[in-house]
Write a protein that binds this DNA or RNA. Sequence first.
DNA 1: CGAGGCGTTGAATGGCCTCAACGATGGTGG
DNA 2: CCACCATCGTTGAGGCCATTCAACGCCTCG
Lengths: 235, 235
Amino acid sequence: MTKTIQTEDAWRGEADCKTCSIRDSVLFSKLDECLFERLHHPIEQISASPGTTLYRSGQTGGHLYTLRHGLVKLVQYLPDGNQRIVRIARDTDLIGLESLLGQPYQHDAICLQTCEFCSLPVDVVRRMAGECPDLQNELLNRWQKALSEADAWLTELSTGSARQRVARLLLRLSKQNEEHLCYLFSREDMGSMLGVTTETASRTIAEFKRQKLLMDSGKGCYSCNLEGLQRLAED
Amino acid sequence: MTKTIQTEDAWRGEADCKTCSIRDSVLFSKLDECLFERLHHPIEQISASPGTTLYRSGQTGGHLYTLRHGLVKLVQYLPDGNQRIVRIARDTDLIGLESLLGQPYQHDAICLQTCEFCSLPVDVVRRMAGECPDLQNELLNRWQKALSEADAWLTELSTGSARQRVARLLLRLSKQNEEHLCYLFSREDMGSMLGVTTETASRTIAEFKRQKLLMDSGKGCYSCNLEGLQRLAED
DNA sequence: CGAGGCGTTGAATGGCCTCAACGATGGTGG
DNA sequence: CCACCATCGTTGAGGCCATTCAACGCCTCG
């Protein structure tokens, strides 16, 4: 059974945005000191375990969420029940933007790892954005970032052979950190990201391991042969 | 050879936004009368023939464009030269939003039909948005619309068999107008939209015609058997 | 310990791609 | 005006690759 937030596996607390450790990269980085004073403590912190559903497609929630730590998949469904992962949110990403416009959420948001969020009430963000042009601008930037991610998924991860798609996915993942290590998703999730079956994802990953394009670094992480993968990705 | 705007096939004129015939649906619909007064005549109108490139990926242009009439494809390219159409813009759509953030264009924008645009200088839009919260909000709405289009393309048009994808594309197209007529793209463009080859697109369309799922309505338009296509799309 | 989830692998099928040929169309220039 | 060429849609044949269905080992968890 899928878990939903508001159950006992979600821990809640209160945030202190002014001294937030990742404040430079989150939405409110643009906020003036004076506005911070007025933001008494409407920001809640949430901690959630893997598999937790943060929100569901179609719900009209009153919050957006800053992902402080962890990985979240945004999922859409086809009439036949097939699922497609349209984006992966990581540290400092902002999800549920559509709620700012009064629209229902467009995806299911499901934690892939243990995650920590800040839960931002829509009316608070809206009010502050009205008073702070920098925040407005930051919102536009977030939206654009999501959009170019979406476009990249279409061109890179949904085009070409299965081998190419997996290679491009691994390259994207390993470029996200300094050590070029990548956390491997479940084969089923990989399939939903790439538009292939879980078996094909599994076979391809196994093949890459045999060819030493992927090498185990322990604790579920793998280091990639970037040149080899690049060659595969391009042709 | 691909044509680029600024050549003789692009006609330019001056727009009168205040009396614009489609003003209710375009970006400036939210603009106060008083602001209109200040908008002397920085808005240019452009007319372009099919095949014209409005802007190219990587360029840092100073304009966004309201599409008043016509169809425009937004294209991205893979390293191997393969192209992928990530979105189709239609009447009243706003393209080149990324230029508002100072970013280079993310796509090639190429006219599929004879098109008419309004060319909006970035600094004008930025300035007016600063003074008009409704316009700010309208911009967010445009961004979100583009984003949910992108997501829909991923789930509907890049998932499942070729037959399903073509059926879903036709359904999307015919739902865009009252008469459920749809303009058929070139087979090559269809292929780039759906992530299949032009031959597969051609074969599938031909098959649909034979099965009377698509019926010629003259002048390049076809009427669809919606129930039949729906059945195909779902399973 | 058994159940269930997950990754892996095998075998067979079928769908899509590749390469190729051909007709129709439309634009160009002789 | 018509031959010519380029482009586009269509169709065929063959082969590859991803899917499908199935089985099995491993692990975690109850």
